[in-house]
Design a protein around this nucleic acid. Structure first.
Lengths: 241, 241
DNA sequence: TTAATAGTGTCTATAAGACATTATATG
DNA sequence: CATATAATGTCTTATAGACACTATTAA
């Protein structure tokens, strides 16, 4: 009954994948990488979430591994990053029993310059709108992307998550816009502003956003990296599994 | 740059651990297993979360592995089970780079008969009250247990989770009691009943709980296995990381 | 001036919080 | 009857939803 731990004891493959979201052209996008067109690799030529094997020499822990993948593809070093979950089974990878640890990251689109991956893999932003998400992905990545979207949309209902899709300084209208883009429905303006301001999550900076209209107050996060939980969801959620 | 995948490529150890909660004597308890007093094993004699290596022959996937661990210790076959997360680093296991996939389970105390593990390991329920949790556990299990408690208490504020700590049939007072035990604070009765009944999560069975007082209506879940999300938390939560 | 977006105010609806009251069993 | 717990009712409070209205800039 006792599990052996000799070097020969078969261990599952261990990978880390990252679901990276940003807002581009008024739409939510996810970063995908095209797999090598190499018959030795599983799913050659297909699009997949950025990720790969845990490197037990390079990676101190799983989160460091996720940050490395993110940095390698986008150059971003301090994203909002949280764990989404892990998936492991005998069937999800043709090379054998494999488990992936999945993280999900939110980054502002602005400073990102996509880096071609190792062996010049193609890297691209794909829009995700409604249920209309890229459906054919390598491995079980389509299912994982769905789970990430569900988590994102759920959490956006009652937290300050979407600020991490914006640059450091933003107006309340910017922020409301991101909520609406992620949730794909309009949000009531005055309720939104009351919620954000009374939560004490932001502070005004002494600058205004100028334009061909009334200038808008710029704000920044009071506690960068933190999440604020609002006392209610925008619209009541109902039964789930 | 390309990661090798020859059999010799070093893979992290892969384990699954389960945080199993129940309510016993009006207090929340967690199941722990004493590690073997064998100098070959890490953390000999210490208490730990039940778990162990993924068996790539026995376990179809991670959840099946978690269910197997639960069944082996408690005999319970259909618990409430959800994934808590995964932790992997170079330091958490003296045997080398190791990643654990952690699940968390809620079971009613009633039908459980604890099974001594392989090699007659001791298995016991430990009370968890406030921050007063068993602190010295093997590996990083104390930290994992804290995370599980945090997730449980958080989720109890706005979901129907605690029903899974009760038998199939229960009264509203039973249910309120479990909420109070997990949250360690009293809940207002009429608000609680309105919330539960208007959520449509339970249905009355044609039986009453008799006692030396007014009989109480017995209820059961309408959709066993499902979770109901309430539109508000009981008490507004505030900032977190 | 107009167009455009920022920001505020008013009224209603919903569900929680506090707390009192009524209901129904046993002994 | 007393006691214990179940179940309901009333009034207040907090915040979202709908929608109207005012404010401030550039052109």
């Amino acid at each position: 009954m006792k599990q052996p731990m000799e070097p020969s004891f078969p261990r599952p493959l261990a990978t880390v994948d990252v679901v990276i979201f940003t807002v581009l052209d008024e739409r939510l996008h996810v970063l995908l990488v095209q797999r090598l067109d190499d018959a030795d690799d599983p799913f050659p030529g297909m699009w997949a979430l950025p990720g790969g094997f845990v490197d037990i020499d390079k990676d101190r822990d799983l989160e460091a591994c996720a940050k490395r993948k993110l940095r390698e593809k986008t150059g971003v070093t301090s994203p909002y990053l949280e764990q989404l979950g892990s998936w492991g089974s005998t069937k999800r990878d043709p090379r054998g029993w494999a488990a992936t640890h999945v993280y999900f990251a939110l980054i502002p689109a602005d400073p990102v310059v996509l880096e071609k991956g190792a062996n010049a893999q193609d890297v691209r932003w794909f829009p995700v709108t409604g249920k209309n998400v890229v459906k054919k992905l390598a491995f079980d990545h389509a299912m994982i992307l769905d789970t990430a979207l569900e988590r994102l949309r759920n959490k956006v209902e009652y937290t300050s998550l979407p600020v991490y899709l914006l640059p450091d300084e933003f107006t309340l209208s910017d922020l409301q816009r991101v909520y609406e883009i992620v949730l794909e429905r309009p949000i009531e303006k005055s309720a939104f502003r009351t919620r954000v301001l009374s939560s004490d999550m932001v502070e005004a900076v002494s600058k205004m956003r100028e334009g061909a209209n009334r200038p808008a107050q710029l704000y920044r996060l009071k506690n960068p990296g933190s999440l604020v939980y609002f006392p209610r969801t925008f619209k009541p959620r109902r039964e789930m599994d």
